[in-house]
Design a protein around this nucleic acid. Structure first.
Ligand SMILES: [Mn+2]
Ligand SMILES: [Mn+2]
Ligand SMILES: [Zn+2]
Ligand SMILES: [Zn+2]
Lengths: 117, 117
DNA sequence: CTTTAAATGCAACCTTGTTGCATTTAAAGT
DNA sequence: ACTTTAAATGCAACAAGGTTGCATTTAAAG
C-alpha cells in the first residue's frame, strides 16, 4: 500500500532502485514481488526505456483489466533523467510497409521536461 | 569482420546471445567488446526493446558520424520474436504538452512481421 | 485462542554486462 | 628474417538487476 501511494503521489515512473531507496527498511525481494503483483493486477504498468532501465507507473486512464491498452507516449528527460507518462498524448497511427501487422506501439520521447525547461 | 558480415547479411537486429550462438568459438567478452567498438564507431546501433533485450543492427541509411540520427521505426514480431529496422518508416512529428522539448524519439512497434503473416 | 493463509526475509542462483590482467596474434621497424 | 610494439583475445572476477525455494512473521478467519 505504501508503495502504491508513492507511485500514485509522484508524477513519474519510478525504478526499483529508486523505490528501494525510499523504502530502505523493506527487503528488495519483497519490493520486486510487490511490483510484479501490481503489474499482474493491472494496477501499474512497466516501462522499459531505451536506456534499459525498468520503471513502474500507476495506470491512471482507468483502463479496464481486459483491454489493458497502453496507448500513450512516455517522456524521458535527459536533464533530470525522470520518466513521465504523457497520458494525453496518444500513439499516432503509423503506416508500415505492406505485410507488417501492428498490434501495439511503444513510444519513448527524449528531451527536456516541463520542470527542467 | 565476421560479426559485421553476420549483422550485414541478416535482415534483422541480433542480440549478443544470438551472435554468441553463431560464433561459438569466440569468447563472449570479445563479442561484447566488438559490439561496443562497432557502436562507438557508428557502424551499428543498439536497440533496447520494451522487452529489455539489447540488439544490434548495422546502420544502413549512410548516416554521417556526426549526426548519427536514429530516425526510423523498429518492429518486434510477436511470432518469431525478431526485430527489424524499418529504415523507410520515419518517426512522426509528435505534439507534446507545453514545456516538453523533444530531442529524440524511439518507436518500437509490435505485431506480426512480413515473413510470419 | 487456535488454525490457516498470506506476506516477508534470507540465501542461493541466474543473466547481462564490465574491468583488470596475462597471453596471443598480428602489424611495423630494422 | 628477426625483433619490437601494439592490438586483439581469453580468463577470472566482479557488479547490477532479477528470480526462486524455503523458513519465519504477520495477520486474517474460524
Ligand atoms: Mn505510462
Ligand atoms: Mn534501426
Ligand atoms: Zn527533467
Ligand atoms: Zn515474424
Amino acid at each position: 500500500m505504501k508503495v502504491l501511494e508513492e507511485l500514485t503521489g509522484t508524477g513519474q515512473a519510478l525504478s526499483h532502485t529508486e523505490l528501494e531507496a525510499t523504502f530502505s527498511k523493506v527487503d528488495r525481494i519483497t519490493l520486486y514481488r510487490v511490483l510484479k503483483d501490481f503489474e499482474e493486477a493491472g494496477i501499474v504498468h512497466k516501462i522499459i526505456g531505451p536506456d534499459g532501465v525498468t520503471r513502474f507507473a500507476v495506470c491512471r486512464h482507468n483502463c479496464p483489466d481486459e483491454t489493458h491498452t497502453e496507448d500513450h507516449v512516455h517522456f524521458n528527460c535527459t536533464n533530470c533523467h525522470k520518466v513521465f507518462c504523457l497520458e494525453h498524448t496518444h500513439n499516432p497511427d503509423l503506416r508500415l510497409p505492406t505485410g507488417f501487422k501492428v498490434s501495439g506501439i511503444q513510444i519513448l520521447v527524449q528531451g527536456i521536461c516541463k520542470h527542467c525547461s
